[in-house]
């Protein structure tokens, strides 16, 4: 695998090139980039790829990671089966 095939998001099978392409298309804020590429929305919910996304965005747009921020973290922290949830309590 050459340099151009760096996988940055394993769940959604995204390469660094594809992320850069999306930024070039104008999806150059983190929330838009996440939605357009699907990065951080797979099984790991960004645990594996969010840092890469921020790094690439920072390099491409010359903004600091602080300026870029992080995506909104959505519950649950880890995937939970519907069967288990259906046994939970309601208010």
């Amino acid at each position: 695998m050459g340099k151009s095939r760096k996988i940055v998001c394993r769940c959604e099978d995204l390469t660094e090139e594809e992320i850069i392409h999306a930024i070039d298309e104008g999806y150059n804020d983190l929330e838009s980039l996440k939605r357009y590429t699907g990065a951080t929305t797979g099984a790991c919910q960004g645990k594996g790829c969010l840092m890469h996304l921020i790094r690439i965005l920072s390099q491409k747009t010359k903004r600091s990671p602080e300026e870029i921020g992080v995506t909104t973290q959505r519950p649950p922290v880890n995937p939970v089966p519907l069967l288990i949830l259906s046994e939970g309590d309601t208010e």
């Binding site: 099984a43 519950p75 649950p76 519907l82 939970g88």
Partner: peptide, 20 residues
């Protein structure tokens, strides 16, 4: 989760990844 597994019981093994 309660209602959806009543409607389509087979879904009960599927995991919720994210809610908003």
């Amino acid at each position: 989760a309660r209602r959806v597994t009543q409607l389509i019981p087979k879904l009960k093994g599927l995991s919720i990844l994210r809610q908003w």
